[in-house]
């Protein structure tokens, strides 16, 4: 299984790098650019395929599809976050009350933790400070009480990310 996982990761990295090369060079008909692209993307994929696709994470296509469906909700949350920040910036009295909160999640995978941390940073009023991958502990800086409560009590975002990465337990 290990060997097959490595080949799969190499293939995915190679395809992504080659597509990126074609989009940047814009010369599909010239054979020199194609051959140089094949050589350099094979080199990059050979050297660093374990950065993009870890060997143990199977079902990566299904997870990518679920992540793709998660993105529109995330974009809407980003728009809400920006309107919230604009309100707090432009209000004459600046209604802010910063605090640092901690909570734990059941997520363990690297990619899931990264997605959750970036989503927390982009959604209303909260920024991730530290993430502990071993026990899933997050420290979050919140700009006011309401976003902190939304993250601590309601926990919509944790449920959504756990559903994307199938790590509900």
């Amino acid at each position: 299984m290990n060997h097959r996982g490595k080949g799969f990761g190499f293939l995915i990295t190679f395809i992504l790098m080659f597509l990126f090369w074609i989009f940047l060079s814009e010369q599909i008909s010239s054979p020199f650019h194609l051959i140089a692209g094949v050589i350099s993307s094979a080199l990059v994929a050979f050297l660093s395929h374990d950065l993009l696709v870890k060997g143990k994470s199977e079902k990566i296509l299904l997870k990518s599809w679920r992540l793709f469906r998660y993105i529109p909700w995330e974009l809407w949350q980003i728009v809400l976050a920006n309107i919230d920040v604009a309100y707090r910036v432009l209000h004459p009295k600046m209604p802010i009350d910063p605090c640092v909160i901690e909570f734990e999640t059941s997520l363990r995978g690297d990619f899931a933790l990264t997605t959750l941390a970036n989503s927390i940073t982009l959604t209303p009023g909260t920024i991730t400070i530290t993430v502990e991958p071993r026990n899933g502990k997050f420290q979050v800086h919140a700009i006011a009480k309401e976003p902190a409560d939304a993250l601590l009590v309601v926990q919509t975002m944790q449920k959504k990310v756990a559903e994307v990465f199938m790590e509900t337990n």
């Binding site: 980003i78 920006n82 920040v85 910036v89 940073t121």
Partner: peptide, 27 residues
């Protein structure tokens, strides 16, 4: 512009990052 104004108006480093990290991304 809101991100820049927040960078100037907010009282400390962490709240300034709140303004810039979100508004610059969406802007």
């Amino acid at each position: 512009l809101v991100g820049s104004i927040g960078l100037l108006r907010f009282p400390d480093f962490y709240t300034r990052l709140h303004a810039t990290g979100k508004c610059d991304t969406l802007g």
